[in-house]
Design a protein around this nucleic acid. Structure first.
Lengths: 359, 359
DNA sequence: TTAAAAATAGTGTGCGCACACGAAAATTAT
DNA sequence: ATAATTTTCGTGTGCGCACACTATTTTTAA
């Protein structure tokens, strides 16, 4: 391992000079700069990031604005764990991470958390831009204050964060279509279950539906797609009656596609025979969904690797802060196809971290 | 961030004493030890790994024994890149990695590389145990010298490395079976193409075939599976004639399963109509295979995430060496289902690293 | 009681780098 | 020529920790 000292020795200059050319601090004559640079090159020098971090006493504050989670709606726990894991790793190099949560049904709590967040004067922000209008406000302020920010999981057209970390929702829906078609070899009809979103939110889900339809559009125009719009997955009775009348209305339906993360709620209101015959394809590896996958009621889940999203977000931001690597504008994560057989393996990273946490 | 100094101050002892209780070095009276420990706990102290790594000047040598790769047989490039990426990261913390390559058709080169490897007196070894007999020799010696070692990608029953990092081959074959069945909704026959392995090698491939067959066995006993044993994927003419007579013999075959990483060689010898109608499912995201996937000739590839395997191996070993975390005996990586739509996303990690390398 | 030995605790140095400060050399002004 | 600037470069300190060495206290032996 070649050190600055070694370079200085070989170039017959002081360590300070080497430091100056390394960081383009100026104050070095052309001649010596060239000389040092050549030796740097030849000896294949690279600064020791550990020593560097220690000396710089890096103190970056990354603030994360993310929805809270609970038992029934646990999706947001997954990115959180990934964020947590990466936080541990980058603490090494002087990056501290703070979390600010909000209720993802409540725009006010979103804004409120944001204001609390700004009090710590973060060096960078990672946020889930849940609400359109409020996000515009926030982004405006962040731009004014020159605080770099990245979007996690949800992308918003028209805004240009330093990076977006998440899935290509359209393609993931497209793949869901492909899997659905594969599962329905008799070319029976297919149903799509959406929440009737009032606001322009949940871009991701809309894009998934578009991808799904487009697959059928381009490949199997003849297959009939029926859409059912429900008010909420939370109200079981309401859901049950909607779904049953829907299935009675279209008896040819052989499969159901749920573009949100709540397919487990659907499974709950289906009869056993329906669970066994209907091909169900949904999104996201929440514990409830994974249970349905494993017991065979759900055939495929598309995972957007939420754990990895969180992990990547922190890594990306700290790479930017510490070794000022530039952001990658769109960081699309894998479109993971989960079956009952591979789900445990594919979620292993997350499980390992969780058990590590508890010990 | 609370430092040793802060703890010492609060406990009215010297930093040395705190250091002693932190590392159980002994030489501290019960009383003061308790006192310090309590404060450690209360202040939620954790040693700064950066400073620690720097001070320890860790000097671990990890040696990697891995097959070489070339244009036509490029599989082993993928784990290599993953190893490389992790090597960069752990260089920070004093872990140096050296690579020793061997020809994976040649047991002697395997042993020869091993002997060269031992000359650097590695602190730990990561190896791909390609050859049974030779691996037994090596493992015996490593055990004698008390050098910890892990197996990468290939597992060998009866031996107990400190860890195995790779895929659950049986299950991956099982999933391939599931996908094949899904693709052949008309329940036509299915062919399996294997190399007739002379030696007991390639356990992984055998297990994949077993998993594949077992899927049909348990779920669709009625479907006929035909096996074709060929001598090599390298000899195109030979392959072509074997495959064609095979397909003539069993005209009901609607899909072919290639449990090795060489499905692209099969695609080459198929006619265009065959490529379009036969459902092809294979393994591994080699560039050639990915090309076939993207142009539609191959329907699914199962990836064993070779890049991640390499990455994980280094991380695991250096976690063991530096922060003496214990090994995880079996570290199974995701069973990744690749389609033409998601392959780019799912290989993104590797691509990002490759472009980083070239800049 | 004092000396010797053992147990316990304190001090100092260096890991490789970043950065402030001051010294030397080169340039310009007087 | 010397003084005043400016450019160029060397030196020193500290980041938080590991570990060896030394100093102090306590215990045991004489």
């Amino acid at each position: 391992m070649v050190r600055i000292k070694d370079i200085a020795l070989e170039a017959n200059v002081s360590e300070g000079t080497v430091d100056r050319v390394l960081h383009n601090r100026g104050g070095v004559s052309k001649k010596t700069e060239e000389k040092v640079k050549k030796i740097l090159e030849r000896r294949n020098f690279s600064i020791n990031p550990v020593a560097s971090a220690l000396a710089m006493k890096n103190n970056h504050h990354v603030a994360v604005l993310i929805p809270e989670y609970n038992e029934t709606d646990s999706f947001w726990k997954l990115p959180y764990l990934g964020l947590l894991k990466a936080s541990e790793e980058v603490k090494n190099i002087g990056v501290n991470v703070s979390y600010f949560k909000f209720n993802h049904y409540n725009p006010e709590s979103f804004l409120a958390s944001y204001f609390k967040l700004m009090e710590i004067q973060p060096t960078a922000v990672i946020m889930v831009p849940m609400f359109l209008k409020e996000t515009h406000v926030i982004v405006g302020e962040l731009n004014k204050n020159k605080v770099p920010y990245v979007f996690l999981n949800v992308d918003i057209e028209g805004l240009s964060p330093h990076a977006y970390i998440g899935q290509d929702s359209y393609t993931s829906g497209f793949i869901a279509g492909k899997l659905m078609k594969l599962s329905l070899c008799d070319a029976s009809d297919c149903g799509i279950l959406q929440i009737n979103t009032k606001m322009g939110d949940n871009q991701a889900i809309l894009k998934r539906v578009k991808g799904f339809k487009d697959y059928y559009e381009t490949e199997f125009k003849s297959v009939l797609l029926h859409e059912l719009s429900i008010s909420s997955f939370g109200d079981a009775e309401n859901l049950a009656s909607s779904v049953h009348s829907f299935l009675e209305e279209f008896p040819n339906i052989g499969g159901l596609f749920v573009p949100s993360s709540r397919i487990s709620a659907l499974v709950k209101v289906l009869s056993e025979t329906q669970r066994n015959t209907l091909k169900l394809i949904g999104f996201d590896n929440t514990p409830q969904n994974v249970t349905c996958l494993k017991n065979g009621s759900v055939l495929f889940l598309i995972s957007q690797k939420p754990f990895d999203q969180g992990y990547e977000a922190i890594r990306m931001v700290s790479d930017y802060l510490v070794r000022n690597k530039e952001f990658k504008e769109k960081r699309y994560l894998p479109i993971d196809i989960l079956t009952k057989e591979n789900v445990d393996y594919n979620d292993a990273n997350q499980h390992i971290f969780e058990t590590d946490l508890n010990s």
